[in-house]
Amino acid sequence: MKMPATKKERMLMFALGGVVGVVVLIGGVLWGVLPLLDGRRAMQSSLVEIGEKLKKAKRELDYAPAIQREADDAVSQMERIRAENILRPILGSYLVGVSEQIESVARSTQVHIEEIREVGVVNTPAKGKNRSLQEFKSFVVQVNAEASFAAIFQFLQKMEERNPFFCVNEIGISSQSDSPEKQRLTVRMEWPIEPKTEGAKGGGL
């Protein structure tokens, strides 16, 4: 290209070139560089975010074997408790099994049982005010009996040894003037039961 002949024309051409250059530069920055920079920033933040998630996941996965062992242990503990300690109904009745236990222990400890009265299924003491679901309820009976003081505590000890979840929540022992060796015993006993069997209340077959 031939340069303009006069200095004025050359200056004009340079100025025009400059303006075009600036316009092209601004256009390039606005529609080319800035979107790319935004994209890069977005990718960087997404990389950081995913990196954090991966770190968190890795930590969680590192703990997973220990959690699995703990969960297995909790399951086996719970299964053992369910099998051995949670009261199960016999043909829909809790009272039948409970009466058998009480009478068997009473015979071996010289306690004369007069009455085993079913109180029923009651809610277990709430653990926290926010607990909406109680996993367990309790089956309660009241036993009236007569025995010596020593026989009474042996009777209760044996009941407690049979099932560490067996709970006594009321006791009344009173002496009898006509028979000082024998005490009158009223005891309220309870066993944990599972709510899913709540419908099958005790009280006979």
Binding site: N85, T124, P125, F136, F149, I152, F153, Q154, F155, L156, Q157, K158, M159, E160, P164, F165, C167, V168, N169, I171, P192
Partner: peptide
């Protein structure tokens, strides 16, 4: 439940 109870046999 178990730990909050008292072993009354032993207590008496």
């Amino acid at each position: 439940w178990r730990d909050s109870r008292i072993a009354w046999g032993k207590q008496l």
